[in-house]
Design a protein around this nucleic acid. Structure first.
Lengths: 336, 336
DNA sequence: TTGTAAGCGTTATCAC
DNA sequence: GTGATAACGCTTACAA
C-alpha cells in the first residue's frame, strides 16, 4: 500500500510537501509540484492511513454509537427499529463529513471508557442513559456526546429528546375522550429518570386530570419481543374491564394486538390500543394502529448536526432539542 | 492517557517488558515484575492504543460491515430488519473476540477500497453482491471476506447463503397445491445473479412443473417501503384473476396485505399471500403471514464463526454454508 | 530476566 | 518553496 513516503519518492519531493499538498496547505508549493503529487497519488492509489493520523493528531475521526445493554438479557442492539433506522441515518451523514462509525455495545462504564480510549474516539452517541454509573463517567469526558432519549441534564451533553410526557398524556387523554376509563399502560421496563418513566407520568397525569383513579394493576412492564407480548396479552385479558391500552412502543402494541386477537378479543371493539413512534408497522397491522408520531429522520438529522458542530469546535446554540409528538388517528381506537 | 511508557516508568522497567507482559509473553519475566506491571496498568488505567498497534502490526482488529447502496435512492442501511438483526448478532460475537465493528455504506468499489485501506480493515462482511465491479475488487483482496446472500463463487470468499430457490419454489408449490393458478410474484429489484433472482427462478420452476404458463405481467418489482407497497397493491388489484402472491420479503408482504385490504380485497379470501424470512412481523399482521422461514440468528453465528476462523489464519472447512428454508403455515393462504 | 533501538505512516516545527 | 527531524504509542529483533 502506497504511503506518503512512496509519493514523495516517486515525485522527488519530501514527505512534508506531500502532506502539505494533501491538506491543501499548498500556499507556497509550486503549481507544478502540486500537479506532480496529485498525479502520483492517483496513480499509486494512495489512501491516508487513519491509524497513523490518529496517532499523531489525537483525533481519530471515529464516532462511537454506543448501546448500553443489560448483561443478563441477550438483547440485540438492533431489536428496536427505531434504533436501527437511526443508526442508518447517522452513518450516512457522518460518512459524508469524513467520519467513521463504530458500533459498540457495552455492559459497564469501564468497558465504555476502555473503548473510547482504545480508539481515541472523537465523539459518541448514546441512547437511553439514566442517572447511573454511565452518567458519572460521561460527565467526566470531554469529547462531544449526543444523547438520545435521555432525561439527564449536564452541560457536557447534547440531547435530542421527545415530548414523551405530552405524547403519552395525549394518547391517554384521547382514550378518555372516547369514553374509556379503565386504561392499561404497557411498556418495557420503566427505569427511574428514563423516557419510559416520562411516558408513564404522562399517562398518570391524564388519568388524574380526569379524576380516574390510578390503578397499578393496570401497569404492565414487559419485554418487547413477540413471545412476551403474546403472553402479556393473556394477563391483560384476565382483567376484563380494561377497555383501552396505552403502549410505549409500536412494536409492542402490535404484539399485544396480535395476542389479544388470539385471546378472542377484538381491537378496537373490545379493547382500544394506542402505540408510540409511528413506524410503518402501524399501517400494516389490522386494524391500523393509532399512535403517537415522532419524526425519526429529523431526530437523526438533528443529532448528527449537533455532533458535527461540536466536532468542529463550535458550541451548538441549543444543547437540547425536544421534538414534538402528536397523535395519528387510525383504526385501533373506538368510542364507547 | 497512560501509555506503555508511563507504565514502564512507574514500574521501573522497560517498555518492552511491559509490552511482553501485556501480551502474555511473560515466560521469562519475574513473577514480581509481572505483578508490579499489572498493578500499574490497573492503577493508571492503561488501555492499549489501537491505532498505534494497528500501525505497527498491520492488523487493526477492525471488521467492516459493508453495505452497498445505490446512490440514487436515499436508502437507509437499516431498512431491512434482517440486516439490522444480523448486525446486532455480529457485533456481539466480534466484540467478545476482541474485534471492533465499523459500519460503512459504499456506493462504488473505489470507496470501498479506500475505506479498507484507511483503516487496514482486518475482515469484512458484505451483503448482496453481484457479478459487478464489487466482485472484481473483492476477488483481488486478501483479507477474510464473508458474503451474505450472494450467488457469486470465488475461492477468496466465504458465503452464508440460503436455499432461496427452494424457498420460493416451496412457497409457490404450496399455493398451487391449494388450487391457485394465477400466482403473482412481488419482489424488490431482481438483479442478475442475486438472491432475488434465485427466488424468482424457484417461483418459475414451480409454475413450469405444474404446467402453469409463466406470465410476466404477474411479476412486480418494487421498493419495499410501505408507500410503494400500498401503491403496488393497487396495480395488483387491477388484475382481478390473481388469487395468490409470492413475495420475497415479509415486510413487503405485510405492506401488500395492508394495501390489498385498502382496495377492498380480503386476505386470504380474495387473495392468498406467502412471505419470506419469518420475522416477528408475520405474527403481528392479520391474518398472520404464511411464510418461508430462515434462521437469522444461526446465519449470523455461522457468518461470524467463519470470519473468526479465517482471522485466526485457519481455513474454514466449509467456504460455503447454505441454510435450509421451510414453509411456516399461518393464516394468509386459503384453498380454492 | 530485561533493555535498546528501529520502525510503522503521519504531521508539526522550524530551518533553509 | 521545500525539507529535516522529532514525535505520536506500540511491537519486535536483537543484545546483554
Amino acid at each position: 500500500m502506497a504511503t506518503i513516503k512512496d509519493i514523495a519518492r516517486v515525485t522527488g519531493v519530501s514527505a512534508t510537501t506531500v502532506s502539505n499538498v494533501i491538506h491543501g496547505k499548498s500556499g507556497r508549493v509550486s503549481a507544478e509540484t502540486i500537479e506532480k503529487i496529485n498525479k502520483a497519488i492517483i496513480e499509486l492509489g494512495y489512501v491516508p492511513n487513519m491509524s497513523a493520523r490518529s496517532l499523531v493528531s489525537n483525533s481519530s475521526k471515529v464516532i462511537g454509537m454506543i448501546n448500553h445493554i443489560v448483561p443478563h438479557n441477550q438483547s440485540n442492539i438492533m431489536e428496536d427499529p427505531f434504533q436501527s433506522s437511526f443508526i442508518g441515518a447517522i452513518e450516512r451523514v457522518l460518512r459524508e463529513n469524513g467520519y467513521y462509525l463504530m458500533l459498540r455495545t457495552v455492559e459497564t462504564s469501564e468497558e465504555l471508557l476502555k473503548f473510547l480510549r482504545n480508539w481515541n474516539v472523537d465523539g459518541m452517541f448514546f441512547t437511553g442513559i439514566f442517572k447511573d454509573e454511565f452518567f458519572d463517567l460521561l460527565s467526566t469526558l470531554t469529547i462531544p456526546i449526543v444523547l438520545i432519549d435521555s432525561y439527564v441534564q449536564h452541560p457536557n451533553f447534547c440531547n435530542v429528546g421527545l415530548e414523551d410526557f405530552e405524547g403519552s398524556y395525549t394518547a391517554t387523554k384521547y382514550l378518555i375522550s372516547k369514553g374509556h376509563r379503565r386504561i392499561a399502560f404497557a411498556s418495557p421496563n420503566i427505569r427511574d429518570g428514563g423516557v419510559l418513566q416520562e411516558r408513564f407520568y404522562g399517562y398518570k397525569a391524564a388519568l388524574t386530570e380526569n379524576s380516574i383513579p390510578f390503578d397499578k394493576r393496570l401497569v404492565f412492564e414487559n419485554e418487547m419481543d413477540i413471545e412476551s407480548c403474546l403472553s402479556l396479552s393473556k394477563e391483560i385479558c384476565k382483567i376484563p374491564d380494561i377497555t383501552g391500552i396505552v403502549v410505549t412502543a409500536d412494536v409492542m402494541a402490535a404484539g399485544i394486538m396480535a395476542g389479544l386477537r388470539r385471546c378472542g378479543k377484538k381491537v378496537p371493539d373490545d379493547i382500544s390500543v394506542v402505540g408510540f413512534d409511528d413506524i410503518s408497522l402501524c399501517q400494516m397491522v389490522t386494524p391500523t394502529l393509532t399512535t403517537i408520531h415522532q419524526d425519526i429522520p429529523l431526530r437523526g438529522k438533528i443529532a448528527v448536526d449537533m455532533m458535527l458542530e461540536m466536532l468542529e469546535g463550535k458550541k451548538p446554540e441549543k444543547r437540547e432539542v425536544i421534538l414534538p409528538t402528536y397523535l395519528v388517528e387510525r383504526e385501533s381506537v373506538r368510542a364507547i
